[in-house]
Nucleic acid binder design. Structure first.
Lengths: 135, 135
DNA sequence: TATTGTTATACTCTATAACTATA
DNA sequence: TATAGTTATAGAGTATAACAATA
């Protein structure tokens, strides 16, 4: 069995289950990824944000437009460099972040069922090797 | 680090690299999956085919339309049960299958770099556990 | 009525190219 | 000129609902 096929099938199955979990909590995978990135690297440029999420700048704008319409984020120009648009979470954005985090934690517990610490570490090591091999 | 996030990032990185490899060989991920399923479970219904690939029947029809237009497959009614459309590879379809298989094999070798047999088996075991946990 | 597959339509995520605003 | 981001447009993959053909 090719490793890539096994990985793709597993990822597809897990991604769908995770998407369902996030949707039930009122979110989606890209929104969750963007919320995480905003929370963890506050004050970066949108380019950096897009790179962190693994998408193009225009794709990020697309999502941010929807998130801004949905009242999750605000965008304002940085006074120090007015080319930069600072993205910040609104209260609703913070709420959604916490809700999605809860869903993600619950999902991860489900995923980890029957995993020893050694298993988890071994999986992380092997996945890291795969990324190195294609990067 | 949540397992799901690690898995999703790895799968995204690998899937993009694999898509590029398939595209360079004239294919795409769903086409490759469908070709594999046709070759390995000849004579099934399209429903079974769709289930094997992990998509809906209408989505499969969408891809088969493109593949038929592209001269890769033919569809004809099964005389024994005329509701069933038997999907078969044309010569061009067979050629593409072999070409994509070559690309997939090459990609898998790249992915396996530095993997011992034990590593590969361990990865397969852990991925299987993940699928069990969400299935 | 139930099953097989198609058609029509639309949604989500993604991307590239051209553009605006700022430096 | 270079950089940050947006707008316009498009394409791939997926899905649901309604439909036609067959049993």
């Amino acid at each position: 069995m090719p490793i890539g096929l096994d990985l793709a099938r597993t990822a597809k199955t897990c991604a769908r289950a995770f998407d369902d979990a996030l949707a039930a909590a009122g979110g989606s995978a890209p929104v969750w990824q963007i919320l995480i990135s905003i929370k963890t690297r506050e004050l970066g440029t949108q380019r950096a944000l897009a790179a962190a999420v693994g998408i193009q700048g225009a794709t990020l704008t697309h999502h941010l437009n929807a998130m801004e319409s949905g009242g999750l984020v605000t965008r304002r120009r940085d006074p120090a460099n007015r080319r930069v648009h600072v993205v910040e979470l609104t209260e609703a954005g913070e709420e959604l972040f916490h809700k999605l985090r809860g869903a993600a934690v619950t999902f991860d517990q489900r995923l980890r069922a029957g995993f020893s610490d050694g298993d988890a570490a071994e999986l992380a090591r092997l996945l890291g090797k795969l990324r190195d091999n294609v990067g």
